[in-house]
């Protein structure tokens, strides 16, 4: 509860380490009994390592932060190691865009090894499974859960979006996957992290709804799809008032039972999985139809 009021900047390294440890302590005991787990991962040369993808994103992670702005920055070197280590630690996920930003924020306050465990704590012990997996099903499902919650908590806004044909997941997907570190004022982002590390993934919904509620009246004035969407694209930049947002997130929006979130997550996860299978079927069907006629681009996949 105290954490909802904010962690002082200078205490953040200790408090974050402590909260990470609380989430992964048991795993760490098992994997890291001799204290060399992380350093072994960093040294490991796995052929499956998505090095190219990681390299492509190193400077596209927090380009405006001095620790991550050029290849010679200390932060970039650490970020590379953390991401490589994580992709070996969890090959089912490997490297997912978004994790780079998550790791970079962790590196702002934690040493390299603790930042690695922070990524483990968030991906494997805070977010639902399959949030960053190759199908991203859980993160897709969460956008629909969010939509349901929006219709319940902010019905006027929801109707306004429906009428204009606005799909909020275009905006919220990024918020959730990068844990509010993209285009959100630093103080607000760090506060979301404080509370998320302490309380878990429900916080994602609370703050997302608080963002919308804080500008609800303004959005309601916007007449059409384009104007709404252009507003939504930049609205997160304006979320400076941490106190107000926290007040909305934890008081105005209550009740917020976890049981309900879990139920909605299960329903939507099911739907996303079904749709994914349908899309794959269409895709496979299409490919096989095309294979019956000579396919000029069949050979261009060789190098992939």
């Amino acid at each position: 509860m105290l954490i909802r009021m904010g962690i002082p900047h200078q205490l953040r390294p200790q408090v974050w380490s402590w909260m990470v440890e609380r989430r992964v302590g048991h795993i760490r005991m098992k994997l890291d009994a001799d204290g060399s787990y992380y350093s072994k991962l960093v040294k490991s040369k796995d052929a499956q390592l998505p090095s190219k993808q990681i390299e492509l994103d190193l400077l596209r992670t927090l380009p405006n932060n001095r620790h991550f702005s050029s290849m010679s920055c200390d932060g970039v070197e650490q970020l590379r190691s953390v991401l490589r280590a994580y992709s070996i630690h969890n090959p089912a996920i490997g490297y997912c865009q978004g994790l780079n930003r998550v790791a970079a924020v962790a590196l702002l306050y934690l040493c390299e090894e603790d930042a690695f465990w922070c990524v483990v704590a968030l991906v494997e012990h805070t977010m639902p499974p399959d949030y960053y997996s190759t199908t991203l099903t859980a993160s897709q499902a969460d956008q629909r859960v969010f939509r349901d919650l929006l219709s319940e908590k902010l019905p006027r806004l929801h109707r306004h979006f429906e009428a204009a044909g606005v799909d909020t997941s275009l905006i919220t997907f990024n918020w959730f996957l990068c844990i509010y570190c993209d285009n959100v004022p630093a103080e607000t982002m760090l506060h979301v992290w404080d509370v998320l590390l302490s309380e878990g993934s429900k916080v994602l919904f609370r703050f997302g709804l608080a963002f919308f509620k804080s500008v609800e009246e303004e959005i309601l004035q916007l007449p059409d799809y384009i104007s709404i969407f252009n507003y939504l694209r930049v609205m997160s930049h304006r979320m400076h008032d941490v106190r107000l947002l926290t007040q909305i997130a934890f008081q105005a929006l209550n009740p917020f039972p976890m049981r309900k979130i879990n139920r909605l997550r299960a329903i939507h996860l099911d739907k996303v999985n079904t749709e994914l299978q349908e899309l794959d079927a269409i895709r496979k069907g299409f490919v096989s139809v095309r294979k019956n006629i000579p396919d000029p681009d069949a050979e261009s996949d060789e190098d992939s």
Binding site: L56, D57, L59, R60, T61, P63, N64, S69, Q97, G98, S169, L170, F173, N174, L177, C178, D182, I226, F229, N230, R233
Partner: peptide, 25 residues
């Protein structure tokens, strides 16, 4: 220093084609 895109981004611009204004999304 273009950050990478998560999900989908969106841009609009109005262009003129043979005297007609077209809003491209």
């Amino acid at each position: 220093d273009c950050p990478h895109t998560i999900g989908v981004e969106f841009g609009t611009r109005i262009i003129e084609v043979s005297g007609q204004k077209i809003k491209l999304q």
